[in-house]
Design a protein around this nucleic acid. Structure first.
Lengths: 212, 212
DNA sequence: TAGTGGTCTAGACCACAAG
DNA sequence: TTGTGGTCTAGACCACTAA
């Protein structure tokens, strides 16, 4: 009973209710719901409790926020994210990071090390480096609770406009393997790069290791 | 009835059968199946028809290939991709692209323009620039059928090792809006950058516009 | 053959939204 | 109050797998 397909419905149009499909197709309601659920999962329909079922444009497959922010990417997939703070320090960054952030020789950054977990399983190890001159007293915020980029935008009034990322497959260091719960020989995905606000001002240089 | 959670099962271990859960928890089988289906969808369990249900490690949320290759990313989500070839030309690339690809002044690239579609809906506009010196006669391959990066690896023996990408939200050009079927004022995601093989040799400079 | 998952039935009660 | 989706029941038959 899978003959319900997308027949060029207009976006936002009302889709037949469970009851209507049940009687029209002569199948039981559980069967209807299962078929409709597939279309909902594929992003063609949206159910509103008490209101009805509606045709929706298939959700965008990539959006600026979902590629730039780990938290947003996971949420867009309907997964809950836990951030575990490993450490927060004010440090003078190494040369390449200083360069990428366009900082003067003595300027310090806030180095934030975190483990991102989904369903309690560690997924990624993340190090962010944020210039203190651009986000003063960032270490007074609740960095464990919510999206770092949300804080940067809401508390400091920046607008994040661009993200540069380099992707490569690699072997984790011993410490990274231990943090992610993988074998040292396993392959991991390393993502690295700067995030920019407003007029091309770098606000973060992040280094991430994803379990693969 | 959602009290079935992940209780640190070993990977590959057998999960209780529907029947066993039904009698053990005192609920009906449809209820059990719905709860188990959620765990299957979230990647914690795998069902094998006739064999049983097994614990599986949650699938990786980001892998090198799924962030580097559009085709692979869509396939990993269980979606079918269609590539529509708009045009293939041998051209001398503009300065910034020539620089990113580390080409000499007169060297030519194969410019490949494509529309990527999922479920018949256009999702992205993509322009790849591939040095002909590194992939001679690439225009003789079937570029519509399959993954460009698969061809580069299989036919030319390269191993793709790194991808650099810059992400930004933008407004589409009039031509891009028309190709993607969006309004000119809508926001789109622009992705741009080089892909590298082996010893940091750039093999592609791609420019992509995603519907948002 | 016995056990598993895949699908389906014909009901039921509930929570939510709108008139 | 009515109609909607969310959840659940207690069965049933089928296809697949392995002994």
């Amino acid at each position: 009973m899978r003959e319900i397909q997308e027949g060029r419905w207009a976006e936002g149009a009302r889709f037949p209710s469970d009851q209507e499909l049940t009687s029209r197709l002569g199948v039981s309601r559980m069967t209807v719901r299962q078929a409709v659920s597939e279309l909902v999962n594929d992003g063609f329909l949206r159910r509103d409790h008490g209101k009805g079922t509606f045709v929706t444009r298939p959700r965008a497959l990539r959006r600026f926020w979902t590629v730039i922010s780990f938290t947003e990417e996971m949420r867009s997939r309907g997964l809950e994210v836990q951030n575990k703070l490993l450490g927060v320090r004010r440090v003078i960054p190494p040369g390449p990071i200083r360069k990428a952030l366009r900082l003067g020789p003595g300027e310090r950054v806030l180095q934030i090390r975190r483990i991102r977990a989904v369903h309690g399983q560690p997924i990624a190890y993340n190090v962010s480096n944020i210039p203190l001159s651009r986000c003063p007293d960032l270490d007074r915020c609740d960095l464990e609770e919510d999206s770092l980029y949300l804080i940067i935008q809401n508390r400091y009034g920046y607008r994040i406009t661009r993200g540069d990322r380099a992707y490569r497959a690699a072997k984790p260091s011993r410490a990274e393997a231990a943090l992610l719960g993988v074998a040292p020989g396993d392959s991991v995905l390393v993502v690295e790069g700067a995030t920019f606000v407003d007029r091309e001002v770098p606000i973060d240089y992040c280094y991430e290791v994803y379990r693969e």
